[in-house]
């Protein structure tokens, strides 16, 4: 979708994020269209579009 690094690579990421002013906290599981090695950067960019900041990645799972 956003980052086209690999055609068939996708990664399921469990993460925590936040939005500032006022502080809002998010916990979610999502699938990123990237290999798990670069999933975090891809997810960060994806969240930034929604005005969120990635706080922590709890787990990654290859799909």
């Amino acid at each position: 979708m956003l980052v086209a690094t690999g055609a068939h690579a996708a990664c399921e990421v469990e993460y925590k994020a936040k939005r500032d002013k006022p502080l809002a906290l998010y916990y979610d599981v999502t699938t990123v269209n990237a290999p798990c090695a670069s999933a975090e950067a891809a997810l960060r960019a994806q969240l930034a579009k929604k005005g969120l900041t990635l706080l922590k990645v709890l787990s990654k799972k290859e799909k």
């Binding site: 936040k18 502080l23 906290l25 922590k56």
Partner: peptide, 8 residues
Amino acid sequence: ARVERIFV
């Protein structure tokens, strides 16, 4: 920041 740290 403190609350965020607890969350993380």
